[in-house]
Computed example of a mutant assay.
Amino acid sequence: MLLEQVDKPFSDGRYIFEPKIDGHRLILSRSHGETKLYTRHNNDVTSKYPELIINGPDIVLDGELTVIDPGTGIPDFELTITRFQSKRSRLPISYVVFDILRYDGEDLRHLPLMERKDILDRAINDSPTMSKIAYIDGHGEDLWDAIVERKMEGMVAKRKAGRYRSDKRTDDFVKVINYSYADVHIGGWRKGDFGWLAHYNGRPAGVIELGVPPTHKQAFYGVVKPLIIGEDREFVYVQPRIKAKVKFRNWTKSGMLRSPVFVDFVLSA
């Protein structure tokens, strides 16, 4: 089940609110004693996480696989990707389970969310490797304040009566992202798939691929030609004089913008 996105946190007694875990989606399926693990794109990653291959009843769980930063105690996406991509890494994982789709031969997707939560409580016990996600009833703005204070990724609101739908996005599940903001200069563009090169404090800081309206692209390419200073096979480089505001998930450890989204051009004084 995928998430719609809304711009602002809210409170509503029809919803529960969960912290958004910064990792990658993972479906755990155990049938006839065999456990399989799949990403949201249905890639089999069972061999990557042998810690999750355990005995128990037939079950299908939905959750997020993450690695906790030992310094902050919160999920760390870069550490998660390091564990995912490396054949040798044994960074300790945490599988945070937020839904149950099947249990002991029964399809549960037609049940309201809170009934599925009750079954999930009975179906699995928390351990260092696998745990059920915590949630707050109705008071989304209170949870949001804690999310912002701890610099976590965001929050997910889930309608209590919502059924599990994997065929389309609905407002039964919505997310609010705890974005950071920065002003960057555009230092060029990619020749292939769209992307503007972002510079921050005089250094490369990533590629802006998302959120740019056609009118803003047209305006950029209408004025940028006199600023061109060179090119190679992949990029055209320009004097970084055009400024833009972006929103992004966080700064990476190497000082890059993670998933920057264009907000607007910034007029220089």
Rank of each mutant, 00 (worst) to 15 (best):
R150H: 09
S47Q: 12
K243W: 12
K151F: 03
Y49M: 10
E209S: 07
D22M: 03
A269I: 13
E106W: 04
T39D: 06
Y95G: 14
G187V: 03
K117S: 02
R109P: 00
L267H: 06
G162Q: 13
F248G: 03
Y49N: 12
L2T: 05
D232P: 06
H216A: 09
M114E: 03
G202M: 04
K191D: 15
F235A: 07
D172H: 11
L108M: 08
D118S: 14
A146Q: 11
V236A: 03
S94M: 05
L143E: 03
G192H: 10
H216D: 07
H32T: 09
L37E: 02
Y135W: 14
Y164N: 14
D44F: 04
R150E: 12
R83Y: 00
P9T: 04
V67K: 00
P9I: 01
K87W: 10
K168G: 02
V174M: 03
I177M: 14
E141K: 14
G23S: 08
G73A: 05
V148D: 04
H24F: 15
F77W: 13
F84S: 06
P260R: 06
M1Q: 05
P240L: 07
R165N: 08
K225Y: 06
P50N: 05
H24W: 10
G222H: 11
G73Q: 02
V263A: 02
H110R: 08
H41I: 11
R233N: 14
I124N: 08
G105S: 10
K132D: 06
M256F: 10
G33T: 15
S89G: 02
A198K: 04
T72K: 15
I124R: 01
S259W: 06
G255V: 10
K158D: 12
V212W: 05
N43D: 08
A123K: 00
R150M: 03
Y221W: 06
L52S: 05
T35G: 07
S86N: 02
G63M: 13
L257W: 10
V45G: 14
F262P: 12
P92C: 04
D193R: 15
K117C: 05
Y38C: 04
S180W: 15
V45A: 06
I100C: 12
D137L: 13
R165D: 11
E141S: 08
A219Q: 11
T82G: 00
R241D: 02
